[in-house]
Design a protein around this nucleic acid. Structure first.
Lengths: 213, 213
DNA sequence: ATATTTTGAGTGAGCACTCAATCAATTTCC
DNA sequence: GGAAATTGATTGAGTGCTCACTCAAAATAT
């Protein structure tokens, strides 16, 4: 089995400290959960795919839900990336045009999506019926982490430059994701690759909707 | 328990022929599946909520999946409504403006969504991990049912009137739903009511994106 | 030799599903 | 009209199975 890379956040700390067998378990669980769903996957299956005894899952992750959380928590913490991941988008750059910014923002977030497709799929599916997880996401959404502040800075700057419409930042974010949403869902759940042309179209659309007026 | 109304399609034929107990089962299953998910709901629970013996579920619906399909199939058949449901939107009317059309279209589909919220939630959740269901949806999407043909007619007419951008109809539909998507998902899974103001904004946005140019 | 990790048969609980028995409505016969 | 017979719906204890999870023993590392 090829080793799985984890782009998600800095839980690589935790991940690096795991034994090989524990990594195998996480890896197998990600494959199975994302393919068949959490509820439809048994711990026996996971152990078999990970080439590990079933008991190993429980000595490491306490119970099945603990395994799920070990997979999901990193996503929750890095949907909005942490300091170490800051890309060009979030660094204060005087963008020449709104489209430039949109392009950077969308490609960066899409790279994150592609790098963590399986885990995000598990996360999204789980959020449908998991109230606590949903509450946490809603609560954390406008959290004052550095990423969000940085992004708000950029948006405010673009507004000052009269490149961006003068809406509040949440509404702007919602608009962007509304435009991207179809492609993202298609990619996550319908295995539709996001073509460059489609991405460009989405970026154009978002730019048009958010242009200064 | 107040009797549940089923706005979905004409499976009311089938539904009307059911005995009271069978209707109770469907109703209880819809409540439980939409709240906790199919996989997390036991037939014993359903029977208890329906005030019916567990065996009744199996004599009527053969197995648990049969019960799910009895709930889901009508949605699949009426995501695009059938003849009897045709509202103003789908009737050939010379719309004075693109916004008029958008308004009618969006409010009609939103009414459908509201009237069938639970069942659509079950359907959407199920489609994530059910390949066969997904295939059927993709296959049926541009099906030549009367609704779709009628809608295509309307769109073509709007194009001829130079009110609507000259894209192909699928792309137009995708654009509309992309704009509405955020509100729809929020309503389905986050219990966020769709405010009139938000709806109006969405309609404005869609109109702007699809205006003739 | 000791400590730690790994193992997998074993466990009770809960699952979807069965089926012989019971009940209720309708039909048959006198 | 009413008793008896027939039919079909309804019941829920019972069944086999799979599930998440345990733990004493075995393997491995120190």
């Amino acid at each position: 089995m090829p080793s799985k890379t984890f782009n998600i956040a800095l839980d690589t700390q935790a991940f690096d400290q795991m034994t090989a067998k524990q990594k195998q378990i996480i890896s197998a669980a990600i494959d199975l959960f994302s393919e068949k769903g959490y509820a439809n996957t048994s711990t026996k299956e996971i152990a078999a795919k990970a080439a590990v005894a079933e008991g190993n899952i429980f000595s490491t992750f306490h119970n099945k839900r603990g395994l799920l959380e070990a997979i999901i928590n990193p996503v929750l913490r890095s949907i909005f990336p942490t300091t170490a991941q800051l890309s060009t988008v979030t660094q204060p750059a005087p963008y020449k045009s709104l489209r430039d910014y949109m392009y950077d923002f969308c490609t960066e977030r899409l790279a994150f999506l592609k790098a963590n497709r399986q885990v995000i799929k598990i996360f999204v599916a789980e959020i449908i019926y998991n109230d606590k997880l949903r509450q946490r996401l809603i609560k954390d959404f406008p959290a004052s982490n550095r990423y969000w502040l940085q992004m708000a800075d950029n948006l405010d700057q673009l507004k000052a430059q009269k490149l961006l419409v003068n809406w509040d930042n949440i509404k702007i974010l919602k608009t962007i994701w509304s435009v991207m949403g179809g492609s993202v869902l298609g990619y996550l759940f319908f295995d539709q690759p996001i073509k460059t042309a489609t991405l460009e179209q989405n970026i154009d659309t978002a730019t048009r909707l958010l242009a200064y007026r």
